[in-house]
Write a protein that binds this DNA or RNA. Structure first.
Lengths: 346, 346
DNA sequence: TTGAAAGCGCTAACAA
DNA sequence: TTGTTAGCGCTTTCAA
């Protein structure tokens, strides 16, 4: 009878298992109880060296890989962190996500990616998908504006980190910087460069809007002409930057400085300026936003606003992990600031 | 005694629950059994309208969000797909990941992101983290070379999709294209443009290596001088492209065409050419690889090799889902091909 | 330091 | 169409 357990009595109903090695089997092979095997694997310094050795050997022999779904269910700690990112192929968030992912992984956490949406119903769908996985933390690029989702998030008790912005009322933790300050700083920077006639090329984006408004205000404060604002909508490609610049040169030929809401847009502006053989920076100054990795090496090298995206990702991961492991973070709101990197376009 | 169940006899040990609404509570509120509630939520057309209505109401009232960890454990279907991507901030894979993610989400799956590593031990770690989550499918950017991991992957029974390359021995499914054919095609394309003295700027990457070798072979076939190959190592930035071009112009001034292993490298080559006031394309032709979104709109617009990354992501998602749901895919290996997009640099 | 029992929240299998 | 029962594979609680 090398059969399985008791084929006797009422035919036991049986589930089709996955066939993967379980902790049970490892424990059996090692001649210990499952819980001991669990401890040997998860908290090796809580078991005797002898037990540790037996279990380690059994794990190696079987090629056991713990089922984190089961572990997560039992411990209500999923070791998963979810991130919600806007869907743009090349963006200023890439660096952040990458450093977030790396830091999390090094601490034994995995990253689940959700793409943020424009419609509210879809946003709710994404959030439910995330909450359904019971992640140990949620990383948001941007602030969560929907009051309904904010309270839902709060109710779950899952640590939430909002980023890339500042607000007086974060859901939970916040690592960001002030878009208003950026707008003001860039305006003053250009005014100091003796620029007088401004244009702003911006995408449809609430944060860009705040930078724009602050810029305008700073310009008005100096009694200079009100900047010409061009909203390119959702598309933030080089193409739309070029088109915007063509439009600016047509309707406002006196413009001598352009502030763009993204580096890609700025690259487009530069491209059109070059196409029309305008002297940058003498005739026109251009400032971008983001400092994506290669704008420093182009000719002319782009003056832009730099955000330390890597820091946001790394610090964010650390914050989320701290909270996931039951600790508190001393400073739940952090302003990482920004810097204007002056290069050849100003 | 509005207490919980029987405080009698031996003090029942109790676990601290998470506090989240469970299916149980929803069922209770709706006055049905948990399994009926489950069916109403997951397979609504298998229950009566009356039951469906009761459960829907209860879900709405409680704000119930199903625990996918528990569901995954019980059904051994996690609704998770894992992707392994190389860690490069701006890359040709962005588009693929984005369309993969979107397509998966629309079918109720989530994407887990793993960053592929250079060391073998780390690669094993990443894979164990992935397998531990019991995903319903694994998306690999590239081929898996480690024989050990290949067989481990195969043993799990999880559907695996390799991409961005072609091979006679895929682990499971494969959606890619031939790097050898690309090298040959680009060489012939440039030869046809009356180019004679070639240089190749390439990153340290096995696929780039195959493109390079095919390129060289095609050139040799025409009895033209052997191309000068410059390996820039791991860094594929604009900066290294510029440096490489400077080196080429110094050591091989007769070069009249450069093939780069990435668009960013090509942009660097162009930048240096412009810096040295060389006429592109008259004096020198430049071809990139990847067709990242903005190289079309630069001046000069880059001639490059285009891969349909969106298609790889979308088709890949569909394949993985098919297999996750127990169906088979008719054509487990797909060559999506490539095209040389001729623009102003040739 | 180790183990037995119980149960995390859900669904598969079976029965009515 | 609905319900009962028994787990999925792990960790917590309690006890030795």
């Amino acid at each position: 009878m090398a059969e399985s357990a008791k084929p006797s009595g009422a035919a036991k109903r049986t589930r089709r298992k996955t066939g993967a090695i379980t902790l049970h089997q490892v424990a059996q092979l090692a001649g210990v109880s499952p819980i001991s095997a669990s401890r040997a694997i998860n908290t090796p310094d809580q078991v005797s060296p002898k037990l540790l050795e037996k279990v380690t050997l059994a794990v190696k022999k079987t090629g056991y890989v713990p089922n984190l779904l089961a572990g997560g269910l039992a411990s209500s700690r999923s070791k998963l962190i979810a991130a919600v990112v806007p869907s743009t192929v090349i963006s200023v968030f890439n660096e952040t996500i990458e450093s977030l992912n790396t830091t999390l992984f090094n601490s034994g956490y995995q990253l689940m990616l959700g793409q943020s949406a424009y419609s509210a119903s879809r946003e709710q769908l994404i959030l439910d998908a995330i909450i359904g996985r019971r992640p140990d933390g949620i990383f948001l690029t941007g602030l969560m504006k929907s009051e309904k989702i904010r309270s839902q998030l709060l109710a779950t008790g899952i640590p939430v980190l909002e980023t890339w912005d500042l607000t007086a009322n974060p859901i939970d933790m916040l690592i960001g910087f002030s878009h208003t300050k950026i707008g003001t700083a860039v305006a003053n920077f250009l005014i100091q460069k003796e620029r007088r006639n401004f244009a702003i090329v911006r995408a449809e984006d609430e944060r860009a809007d705040r930078r724009t408004r602050a810029f305008i205000q700073a310009v008005k404060k100096q009694k200079l002409p009100t900047p010409f604002v061009l909203n390119v909508g959702a598309s933030r490609s080089i193409r739309s930057g070029r088109d915007a610049m063509a439009e600016i040169l047509r309707s406002h030929p006196k413009v001598d400085a352009v502030f763009c809401s993204s580096d890609l847009l700025a690259l487009g502006v530069l491209t059109e300026a070059k196409f029309q053989k305008l002297d940058v920076p003498r005739k026109i100054n251009v400032v971008g936003f983001g400092d994506i990795p290669f704008v420093a090496d182009m000719i002319p090298a782009l003056t832009t606003v730099r955000i330390n995206g890597m820091k946001i990702g790394e610090l964010g991961a650390r914050y989320l992990i701290e909270r996931a492991e039951g600790r508190t973070v001393a400073e739940p709101t952090v302003d990482v600031g920004f810097s204007i990197i002056e290069r050849e376009t100003t």
